[in-house]
């Protein structure tokens, strides 16, 4: 009866194997007497697990081994213990790369999250043009980082539009990407400009879950805009904060494209990051062992900061 009275979409009994035989009181001997899911065995996932282990983790671990060698990319090598890591921490260029990486990562994290959240709050409700503006702010995200960087390189050029605009105001032109103090900020601006739209979308998704009734009730109780944001909106979008901040921190730590396209790590290493130095040491200078050590260090840093980030933004409720 259940089957005949059920809707065409009600396939539960079929899947569970409890469908009685049509026209008969005796339940038919089902071909699948158990739910389909019970046929699943853990080892069904074994090929995929093996492939992931081999291609991802074993290969990565194999690469990490080179961090303890003096391999030059060709011929034999010797194990040198922690020598490469000692060199990293004694080399001012590597320390500079580490500092630049952390500056860009945290600058990127703060800038994208603050601006992204402000945009999301502004474009969440009420504004009539919000859909158009959301598209406009999100558009840079879909562009290639290299393409965006080359556009900005033109903007920052000595004879480019930015200096042209400054000239209207009587300001002296600057070599934005060749100035050791300005170049890193220029890279940060380009990174943030392209990615803020993504953060905005994450926060918009979070804001959609905030109950308007509670906000209205708080407003009626006399809570100010800041109090409503601090005590209602922010706790409600905590998962979005965790996702956006973790993603931006990781993306900031591994920045490569924008630096390579805008400055190539220059002038004289002023914008070099760990990722660009890994590339340079490994592929341009053939110091594969040293490059692998830098890569391992970058991986550890990303791992540590990601864990800390997760802990800091965890929902403790």
């Amino acid at each position: 009866m259940t089957a005949t009275m059920g809707t065409p979409q009600d396939t539960g009994p079929v899947v569970r194997g409890s469908v009685p035989a049509a026209g008969g009181g005796q339940p038919a001997r089902s071909r699948r007497s158990r739910p389909l899911i019970t046929y699943g065995r853990w080892w069904w996932a074994l090929p995929a697990v093996l492939a992931v282990l081999l291609i991802h983790y074993v290969a990565t671990a194999g690469g990490a081994l080179y961090a303890f060698t003096n391999w030059t990319g060709i011929g034999d090598f010797d194990f040198v213990g922690l020598e490469n890591f000692r060199r990293i921490f004694e080399d001012p260029a590597s320390i500079g790369s580490l500092e630049n990486t952390l500056f860009l990562a945290f600058g990127f994290l703060v800038l994208t999250n603050v601006v992204g959240l402000l945009l999301a709050l502004a474009l969440n409700r009420t504004l009539k043009t919000r859909y158009l503006l959301r598209v406009l702010f999100f558009m840079p995200v879909v562009l290639s980082p290299l393409a965006v960087s080359y556009v900005w390189k033109f903007i920052f050029d000595f004879n480019g539009p930015l200096n042209g605009v400054l000239a209207w105001f009587g300001a002296a032109p600057r070599t934005w990407l060749a100035d050791p103090t300005l170049a890193l900020w220029a890279v940060l601006v380009v990174m943030a400009w392209q990615t803020t739209g993504m953060v905005m979308v994450i926060y918009l998704a979070g804001l959609a879950t905030v109950s308007t009734e509670i906000e209205e009730a708080a407003a009626l109780d006399g809570a100010s805009t800041w109090q409503r944001f601090r005590h209602i909106t922010l706790p409600s979008i905590r998962p979005s904060v965790a996702i956006a901040s973790t993603l931006m921190l990781i993306q900031g730590l591994r920045v490569f494209d924008q630096v390579m396209a805008l400055t190539g790590g220059g002038p004289a290493g002023a914008t070099e990051t760990l990722a660009t130095q890994v590339y340079k040491e490994t592929f341009a200078l053939s110091n594969f062992g040293y490059g692998a050590a830098l890569a391992l260090l970058l991986t550890v840093i990303m791992l540590v900061f990601s864990v800390l980030q997760q802990a800091a933004t965890r929902d403790r409720s």
């Binding site: 050791p180 220059g266 002038p267 004289a268 341009a284 200078l285």
Partner: peptide, 21 residues
């Protein structure tokens, strides 16, 4: 003896031009 020597010269001169070092 290795590409790093030329790289050090090149980036060093780049720094001199940009007012570094």
């Amino acid at each position: 003896p290795n590409p790093g020597v030329y790289d050090a010269l090149s980036t060093g001169v780049q720094g001199l031009l940009a007012g570094q070092g």
